[in-house]
Simulated scan of single mutants.
Amino acid sequence: MNTKQLEQIHAGKGFIAALDQSGGSTPKALLQYGIEESKYSNEEEMYELVHEMRTRIIKSPAFDSRYILGAILFENTMDRLIDGQFTADYLWERKGIVPFLKVDKGLAELEDGVQVMKPIPDLNDLLERAIKRNIFGTKMRSVIKEANPAGIKKVVEQQFAIGREIVKKGLVPIVEPEVDIYSADKQAAEAILKDEISAQLSALDQDDKIMLKLSIPTEDNFYSDLMGNPHVVRVVALSGGYSQTEAIDKLARNHGLIASFSRALSQGLTAGQTDEEFNTMLTKSVHAIYEASIK
């Protein structure tokens, strides 16, 4: 583990950029960026276009380590180049931004009010490749839609079981049990979730380090006690479908919680913008998210 990167993520001021749209979410990301599905005819062309979008974001002067601590990449992005360097190396060596990798394979069908992760059969090989590509940590997402204790327990147990495998490789996993912001019993689900996370944290080995990526809680500062846990490097928040304005407003009320936004970060960016327009829009978003993250 890179100790300089660990310290930056643990104690640095700023937020984590989520640039990890994959599979079914990539067409949506491109459409938001102003590129319709008619502009590409196969998966390779689609991924080439989304890499161009991510490259434009990463190379922007707005994408600066004074505000952005880390960036989460999709596997396809990890294996591509920016100016002759693999993306993770470009991020760290040229930008001073810590690279993470999304490792999950998507969500299983809804059961017991939750969607656990699909199996990750090639996890060991993927982690070995991530290490060779100088990745610092990983991210994996599950979704909680109801305050169902059995379902939430399954989500958290699966997340931590895989997280332990990742820790053994010397990487820092971002555990992401997202609570759907539209859940009718979101606050009750968050209470169950926090109890399950606390139980799993208490079972970790002494030196194990993880991160948590959680929906912005209904009750302000609800996750503050998790931030002080010695196993927790950082607690970050997803935007979860909130608009940028909503996400920033809610985040700013939660002291110590920092952003790990995707849609809320890229909101307003389009392929047709000039570089000046693009950079101005991204600068505005980066600065607003940063300010909310350091409250």
Rank of each mutant, 00 (worst) to 15 (best):
Q159R: 00
G163C: 10
F86H: 13
L81P: 00
P173E: 08
R141T: 03
K59G: 03
P177S: 10
A184L: 12
L123W: 09
Q159S: 10
P149G: 02
L73W: 08
P177C: 10
Q85C: 01
I162Y: 15
E75H: 12
V114I: 09
G137W: 02
Y90G: 04
I82R: 00
T77E: 06
I166F: 06
F100Q: 03
W92P: 01
M117N: 14
S183M: 10
P99N: 03
V116E: 06
L49K: 15
E165V: 12
F136T: 09
E128L: 12
E176S: 12
K59D: 01
L49I: 14
L171C: 11
N124A: 15
E176P: 14
N124T: 15
S60N: 06
V50S: 15
D89S: 10
L107M: 11
M53H: 14
S142N: 07
P61V: 05
K102E: 03
I68Q: 01
V103Y: 01
V175N: 13
P177T: 11
Q115S: 10
R80N: 12
Q158R: 09
M46T: 13
I131H: 05
V103M: 00
G137A: 05
T77R: 00
G151Y: 04
K105S: 11
I68H: 02
T138A: 03
V172W: 07
I144W: 00
I152D: 01
L107R: 12
D64I: 10
L127E: 01
K169D: 00
T77V: 06
R94T: 05
N124Y: 11
R133K: 15
S183K: 13
K139C: 02
R164G: 14
L110I: 15
D89W: 00
Y182H: 15
L126F: 00
I131W: 00
F74G: 08
A62N: 10
E165W: 08
R54H: 14
I144S: 05
G70D: 07
H51Q: 15
W92V: 04
L127F: 04
L73Y: 05
R133W: 00
E146C: 01
N124W: 01
R94V: 03
S183G: 13
F86N: 13
Y67H: 15
E146L: 04
